[in-house]
Amino acid sequence: MITQLSPKLDRAYMLDWLNKLLLTPSPSGFCMAIMQLIEQEAVRLGYPFERTPKGNGIITIPGKTSSNAIALTAHVDTLGAMVRSIKGDGSIRFSPIGGYAMQTVEGEYCVIHTRDGRQYEGTVLSTKPSVHVHADAREWKREEANMAIRIDEIVESKADTERLGIASGDFISWDPRVRMLPNGWVKSRHLDDKASVAALLGMLEWLKREQRTPERTVHMILSTYEEVGHGNAYVPPNITELIAVDMGAIGDDLSTTEHDVSICAKDSSGPYDYGMTTKLIELAKREAIPYAVDIYPFYGSDASAALRGGSNIRAALIGPGVHASHGMERTHADAIVNTAALLLAYILEVGE
């Protein structure tokens, strides 16, 4: 049990790591730098780290028993884009990575990452970007064909841009615009799902500092393709339970706030495991952790991917409440700490 221990999760540690994660570009399929960063911290804390062939990372926390392992999965990959083509005027037409509304990136600063390691800044704009020039600028539909990236280099033609080394298939990352306010609010792009990764690291740091061992071996799986649907489609065979740790959506008839742990009972893939979800609710009540149970009809998680991939597991979904998902997101430090606390309660209590 965790109740009598009142674990002192290191809030500052989690926020510091959240800042590092947010400032490290990692659109789906371009997660090498962020995975190396996390690997270094896992090794520093003394936990084994391995990588799967597709680039996912697995941190293993040995438990009192190695059978029926628990997996906690969060994704390091984010929304982004790729260079689709270079236009005649040297600007870039891009192809989205992940599902977002095009208007949420209009006006955003970005970085183009070439295959040989060069980086160039740019800005996402409509192809009719000025109301002083285009009479229909306001009505111009914000869709892929009507958007372009203006590169902050002297380019006037396709050949000029090609001479920079930019080519089709180069990755593009959005400026996260991180703001961490003294009152605990955190606003940034990509809190989905780097806020959850920070919670997992905070949990890992507490286990090491307090020299605690979970009831069952725990594998933290950090996935790299969640935003495109197959981040955690494969689960190691010794795992019987998987908790996806991903952001909780906010709005309309949903109950979750930016201070809560969201416990998702059902999303677009169907209901999550009854027993696991019930246990998480019971633990949140017992530990007085602010939480809300919601249903997300337009949402899928790495647990969904694992189940669709044929994994014979039970699965649940929790995470910090995040407002304006896939846009200019916001959460509160409380939600990150609360998520780590609920996960600790689960792995320290749940036996075979």
Rank of each mutant, 00 (worst) to 15 (best):
K208Y: 11
K194M: 06
T114M: 05
P182Q: 08
Y234W: 15
T65W: 09
D252K: 15
L15M: 14
R93C: 06
Y225E: 07
R286H: 09
T123E: 13
P271T: 13
T161Y: 12
G321W: 04
A69K: 02
R150H: 10
I154A: 13
W140F: 15
H134T: 01
N56L: 09
I149N: 01
N238F: 15
V111L: 14
K54H: 13
T114R: 03
I243M: 10
S91E: 12
I58Q: 00
S196E: 04
R179G: 06
G275A: 14
Y13W: 03
V350F: 09
L72D: 01
I154C: 14
G88V: 10
I112N: 08
T104M: 11
C264K: 01
P290D: 01
I166G: 02
D193S: 14
K194N: 02
M102D: 07
R216Q: 01
P236Q: 03
I318C: 12
N338I: 02
G57C: 01
L191K: 03
L9P: 02
L204M: 11
E156A: 13
I2D: 10
H323T: 08
G98N: 05
T224H: 11
I347E: 00
G117C: 08
M102P: 07
S304A: 15
S269W: 07
A249F: 14
L343M: 15
N19I: 12
Q119W: 13
L79K: 03
L79R: 00
F171S: 00
T78D: 03
I289A: 00
A33P: 08
T257D: 07
K87L: 15
I154V: 14
P214G: 14
T24R: 03
Y274G: 10
G229E: 09
K208N: 12
K141A: 10
L317Y: 10
P27I: 04
D273V: 12
R84Y: 02
G351R: 15
E329Y: 05
Y109E: 13
S85E: 10
K158N: 11
A101V: 13
L222E: 00
A81C: 15
F49M: 15
P176N: 11
T240G: 01
A306P: 08
T161D: 01
R115P: 07
A74H: 05
D136S: 13
D260K: 13
A345S: 11
V133S: 07
V322D: 00
I289C: 08
A335C: 11
Y13H: 01
M32P: 07
P53S: 04
I58F: 01
P25D: 05
D334V: 09
P7W: 04
G55F: 00
G319W: 06
L342A: 06
E162S: 04
D160W: 02
R177P: 03
D192Q: 02
R330T: 04
G90T: 09
D253G: 14
S168M: 14
T240R: 12
D273F: 04
V155I: 15
S126F: 07
L5N: 08
T217Y: 05
A12L: 14
E329A: 07
R286P: 05
D294T: 05
A42H: 06
W185E: 14
Q40W: 07
